[in-house]
Amino acid sequence: MREAQSLVADTLSATVNELCLKFGARKTAFALFLAVWRRYQEENQTSHLSNRMRQDIGLPDSEDVSKLPVWNFKAW
């Protein structure tokens, strides 16, 4: 195991530089954007759930800021 760990991978900047040289900066940047976007989409989003559904799965109620009156400074 120690011998396998002694192999050092390239730094991130060297890897990105190699990808840019091989595929171009635009394709590399677009691929990075798509990877980040897919990762964002994979996360479970609970903001669209109603308070009843949030209670059913054990989450606290969400306070919808749009329903709060503007003059209620205690809410802010």
Rank of each mutant, 00 (worst) to 15 (best):
R39T: 08
T15E: 09
V8G: 07
T15R: 12
V70P: 11
W37C: 11
E18F: 02
I57F: 03
Y40S: 12
G58N: 00
M1C: 14
Q45D: 15
A35K: 09
S13E: 12
P60Y: 01
F73Q: 04
L21W: 12
D10L: 09
N72I: 00
F33G: 06
L59V: 08
T46G: 08
V8C: 09
P60V: 04
A75H: 01
G24N: 05
Y40K: 08
L7D: 05
A4I: 04
T11N: 02
T11L: 02
R52Y: 10
V8E: 10
V70W: 03
V70M: 02
L32M: 15
E42K: 14
A75D: 03
V70D: 07
F33Q: 06
M53G: 07
G24D: 07
G58V: 00
R26E: 15
S66N: 13
L21G: 00
N72E: 06
K74Y: 01
E3D: 14
E63L: 15
W76Y: 09
Y40V: 13
L34W: 05
M53I: 11
T46M: 06
E18S: 01
A35G: 05
M53F: 07
Y40D: 10
S47G: 13
R39C: 07
P69N: 05
V36I: 07
W76C: 04
A9F: 00
D61R: 04
P60F: 01
V8S: 09
R38D: 13
A14E: 13
M53D: 13
R26C: 10
P69K: 03
A35Y: 01
S47R: 15
K67T: 11
R39D: 08
G58R: 00
E18R: 09
R52V: 12
N17C: 09
S47W: 12
S6L: 06
E63T: 15
E42V: 09
N44S: 15
R26P: 05
G58K: 00
C20E: 14
L7Y: 01
T15S: 05
L19H: 00
H48K: 10
E42A: 15
E3F: 03
V65Q: 10
C20G: 01
E43D: 07
W37L: 14
N17H: 11
W71Q: 03
P60H: 03
Q45N: 12
Q5L: 13
V16L: 15
A14G: 00
A25H: 11
D56K: 02
Q55A: 11
F73K: 05
P60K: 02
Q45R: 07
L59C: 08
V16S: 05
W37E: 14
R38Q: 14
A29V: 09
Q41A: 12
K74L: 02
C20S: 08
R26T: 11
K74F: 01
F30H: 11
M1K: 05
L19R: 03
F23E: 05
L21C: 02
S13V: 09
Q5M: 12
V70Q: 02
E43N: 05
V36C: 05
K22W: 06
L68V: 15
K67H: 08
P60Q: 04
T11R: 02
H48D: 12
F30E: 14
D10P: 00
T28F: 14
L32G: 07
